[in-house]
Design a protein around this nucleic acid. Structure first.
Length: 274
DNA sequence: AAGCCGTGGAT
DNA sequence: TATCCACGGCT
């Protein structure tokens, strides 16, 4: 359920709002996205408006969704849209892919959900369904090609929605419900033998331990910074680290990412308007 | 191109 | 309580 992409904003179809929602949904479950999406759009209703908001204010709205570089990417994309596309989200694959933070999935999601164009999205759910139906592991290019072939023309919105939700529920990763699967007759796998999706591209790769990781420390710092600036001498403490050199390196990585800036002896969220 | 990037839910 | 896992883009 939490991964279902069904959503009221599908009805809006404002390309900028679809872009924001799809970037948010790249890494974050729909239940956590919903309330933040509304506030974010209120703050940055158009690309031009987004450019004029301090990144720090956008990051406050972002806090809790993870991967805050995505938030910076949205503002960077807004600037490109204003400077190169007259303030309108472009309607072709190459221009969309050229935007910061917009890859193969998100570019096609914008084409399909915002514009209704014939574009087949391949997220992890779609890739899993296709590789199981085909009964073999596949590389990204081939997976995309098959998704393109399957797409019923003129129905991209409903089709993409249905395939992603089908993959998130019936044809899920851990315990697929093959015994009640409506397309079992079309499936090469049917839950018997090795799962082809396990070795196919697009499926998520294992990740290092989170406890004690750089990400955890960065995340703690970002959360604390949404409440106000942090003295340089207290960075390690905020991050929960004993190692001052490591804390220094990590806060500088946040600066390098454009999320944080140093002002005198303190750090704060970047005020930069892009 | 293998590893990094945050958070919360599932097991 | 601890561990595993999802999730797309970037470099």
């Amino acid at each position: 359920m939490p991964r279902l992409r069904e959503f009221p904003w599908r009805a809006t179809r404002d390309p900028w709002h679809v872009l924001i929602s799809e970037v948010m949904l790249q890494q974050t479950n729909v239940g956590r996205v919903r309330p933040r999406f509304e506030r974010f759009v209120a703050l940055a209703p158009t690309p031009a408006a987004c450019v004029d908001v301090a990144l720090a204010d956008l990051l406050v709205e972002w806090q809790g969704m993870g991967y805050p570089r995505r938030c910076r990417n949205i503002q960077d994309a807004a600037r490109v849209i204003v400077e190169r596309h007259g303030g309108e989200v472009p309607r072709d694959l190459d221009s969309l892919m050229a935007l910061p933070g917009i890859g193969p999935y998100t570019a096609r999601a914008i084409l399909a959900f915002a514009f209704g164009d014939d574009a087949a999205v391949v997220d992890t759910n779609v890739a899993r369904v296709i590789s199981r139906v085909e009964g073999r592991a596949m590389k990204p290019r081939e997976t995309q090609a098959l998704a393109d072939e399957m797409l019923p023309r003129g129905l991209s919105r409903d089709w993409n929605q249905v395939v992603m939700d089908f993959g998130a529920t019936v044809c899920n990763a851990r315990s697929p419900r093959c015994s009640s699967c409506p397309i079992a007759r079309l499936c090469s796998w049917c839950g018997e033998g090795a799962d082809p999706a396990r070795t196919t591209a697009f499926t998520s790769r294992p990740q290092g331990r989170f406890e004690g990781s750089d990400r955890q420390a960065r995340g703690r710092m970002m959360k604390r910074l949404t409440e106000g600036s942090v003295q340089a001498t207290r960075v390690a403490e905020v991050m929960g680290l004993d190692d001052g050199d490591r804390a220094e390196r990590l806060v500088e990585s946040l600066v390098a990412d454009g999320l944080v800036e140093r002002v005198g002896r303190a750090y704060r969220l970047s005020e930069k308007r892009r």
